[in-house]
Design a protein around this nucleic acid. Structure first.
Lengths: 230, 230
DNA sequence: ATAATAGTGTCTGTGAGACATTATGTA
DNA sequence: TACATAATGTCTCACAGACACTATTAT
């Protein structure tokens, strides 16, 4: 019976792999107070009046309604709650990591991608505690890139080894040996997570690249049994 | 300004390593509706009127106020939210995994430890969706036991290799080679996470065991760079 | 031919898995 | 002595890291 007064919402840290191999973060211009007009993470409030069947559905709705985007991967990262993160009072935010296809396009003036590095480097400050949420989500991606194939969700379903290398490097930070990655992709092939379309992709110069196809066999990424050591 | 009507709370999945090497779950008898009188996870509601500085503080408070217990490890697992988990309406629960010392004792008739296996096997049903929360928390422990030293938080700070073996087996499920564990403990020694107190522990029969001391150097467990393969 | 890029082969090191062997206590 | 338990040693295997080498295209 006792209805608690808590402001609860979901926020989405949606990442795309840009042309230059750098990660980009999706931001939306806020249409309401507080922080109206500022660029922030897309998100929605959750409450009993909304039609969300579950919190995860609310996260999907946030991306769908605010940006007309369907992510290739969506996972809950964590929930933060305290009295100071929102000027309106004690508030909760359950935030999600979303990985987008590289060809994801935005429609509308109030949506935009910015370089993730600028947000993490605080050159581009965000309202609320959104910078921290972004940092935690990026850490999650980096952490999982060490021992799973999660970064592949940053690519189109058909991809080349070079593109996969870019996705892992962008997610991890430090460079990865291409032979290491090839070994891991080979392992995934054996488990049906990747199939080799016989086709080739011809870059401007050099030998043609094999076109692989990502075939996720379960939620999340393929789990390797070793970490990629630094 | 718009205050959303959401029931938000934290629930704690607190585990202790029992004498027989099986994990035990802390339950509390509910003092209020709904499900008054039934055994359930300890938890508290969060709202602006409470003195909690943050969600993590609320989790600590839940254990402290309800059970007078301070865990050796406490980590957020996830947040579930939907319209059906609580008869009162749309509700959120951020649930935590707590690892307790093996000598943790309970005071009061409304607190009790039950075998974790009985809850997971649904021989002992819990109200709300607490059985699911317990399952997810146990999965988290098992998942991290594969590549971190998290199960050591189930032991007293001074422990033997045999006890560590029991903690890992209880957390993981499948048995672990003691040589593998010794190798990992050796690695932890090199990084200062474990020191060898020169002392010995004499079991009823057989060779005395070395007494090790757990010296966590960071939050969470020590991270190994390989998983313990099945 | 030369440059550029893709892909393979080789060698090393590390740590898990499995199992045998040795060490050190009690009855 | 026999027995029980702890601790160490040895061998294999899988895979990451590093780097050399080969392959296939365009100019």
């Amino acid at each position: 019976m006792a209805s608690a007064e808590v402001l609860a919402g979901v926020d989405i840290v949606a990442l795309r792999l840009g042309e230059q191999g750098a990660l980009q973060l999706l931001l939306i211009r806020r249409g309401q107070a507080p922080f109206e007009g500022q660029w922030a993470l897309p998100g929605v409030l959750v409450n009993g009046r909304c039609a969300d069947a579950s919190l995860d559905d609310a996260a999907e709705r946030a991306l769908q309604d605010k940006a007309r985007i369907a992510p290739q991967h969506l996972e809950q990262v964590a929930t933060v709650g305290n009295a100071v993160r929102d000027p309106r009072g004690w508030s909760l935010s359950t935030f999600y990591l979303a990985l987008l296809a590289p060809d994801t396009e935005l429609q509308g003036e109030d949506l935009r991608f910015v370089p993730l590095a600028e947000v993490l480097g605080e050159a581009l400050p965000l309202p609320f505690d959104h910078t921290q949420l972004v940092a935690q989500a990026a850490e999650r991606l980096a952490g999982k890139a060490v021992y799973t194939s999660l970064p592949l969700y940053l690519l189109a379903s058909r991809f080349t080894v070079t593109e996969a290398l870019a996705a892992f490097q962008a997610s991890l930070g430090p460079p990865v040996q291409h032979t290491t990655l090839r070994g891991r992709l080979e392992k995934m092939k054996q488990h049906g997570w990747i199939v080799d379309t016989g086709e080739k992709n011809q870059p401007k110069m050099g030998r043609p690249q094999s076109l692989l196809e990502h075939r996720p066999q379960a939620a999340g990424g393929f789990i390797f049994d070793r970490s990629v050591l630094s």
